[in-house]
Design a protein around this nucleic acid. Structure first.
Lengths: 149, 149
DNA sequence: ATGAGTGCAAAGGCTTTGCATTAGG
DNA sequence: CCTAATGCAAAGCCTTTGCACTCAT
């Protein structure tokens, strides 16, 4: 998922919002892009060399602000972040309830159709629906193997 | 959603796991049952009179442990808890991105069918799928009204 | 040059934990 | 009775913030 245009998108979106696309921010975007799944800040820092926590958090806050990234809440104590669907394309998540890892999942057309219908039903109740999340919950292959020992 | 059998369920599940169904725990279960949506600990305490935070947190931890409650992560800094689907029946959530409130939503058969199919596709990848979450994200009627002023 | 961004350290705030006391079975 | 549960307060831990310094434009 390391499209080069990702950096162009990022530079544009940040500049439009009055932010600079600095070295540190570029590193964060690059790391998020490389992972291709929602990652915690510790994971991000480990993949980043030399970016302090505070900068990572501040950058992530800005990326979320301008719609380049989203926060994905998992089952553990860490916030997870990934590039927004504008950049990655629409997808769903697979949560491992054992280790907390979240994996991206491509949706099917049939599923999306059904999900959209569900959204319609709710607008009648006075809600403004802006999107949806579909998560599968279970145990990832690695944790399944561990559990069977 | 105040079924009396809820307390029986709770008493049983807790005792089977070696826990007592004390007054404080009964109060927490009652409050969760009354709300019918995922609530934060502050909300829970406000509805509880005289149960200290630490007891609420400890009780919630245990309820989650024995499968009587689940934690629902929202967009703000508070964990939210509600009774598990064993007790409430399967349902989905509606997240208000403005105020953070989460509302329960009844699923349709057609939607469930599509969601199940999606789960099947993933088991082929080595995952053990135990459930799913479908969330709609948007703005609740109250916040929509505020935004339009 | 000049304001945004950075880096370090300290503070915040939700949640967890220690320990003495109380209550459940 | 005897162990689990409680209640208060203090500690933990992820995250945010203050402030002086640096870099981008």
């Amino acid at each position: 998922m390391l499209r080069e245009s990702t950096h162009d998108d990022a530079a544009l979106r940040l500049q439009e919002a009055g932010y600079r696309y600095t070295t540190a921010r570029r590193k964060v975007v690059h790391a998020l892009s490389s992972e291709g799944r929602p990652v915690t800040v510790p994971e991000l820092l480990a993949a980043l060399d030399g970016v302090p926590q505070s900068s990572a958090y501040r950058t992530l806050t800005i990326l979320v602000d301008v719609g380049l990234a989203v926060k994905v809440s998992g089952s553990d104590d860490y916030d997870r972040f990934e590039l927004a669907e504008d950049v990655t394309g629409h997808h769903h998540h697979l949560f491992c309830s054992a280790c907390g890892t979240v994996t991206d999942l491509q949706p099917s057309a049939r599923l999306e159709q059904a999900l959209s219908e569900a959204a319609l039903a709710v607008t009648a109740m006075g809600y403004e629906v802006s999107g949806h999340r579909f998560d599968l919950v279970g145990t990832c292959p690695a944790c399944t193997a561990l559990a069977e020992q």
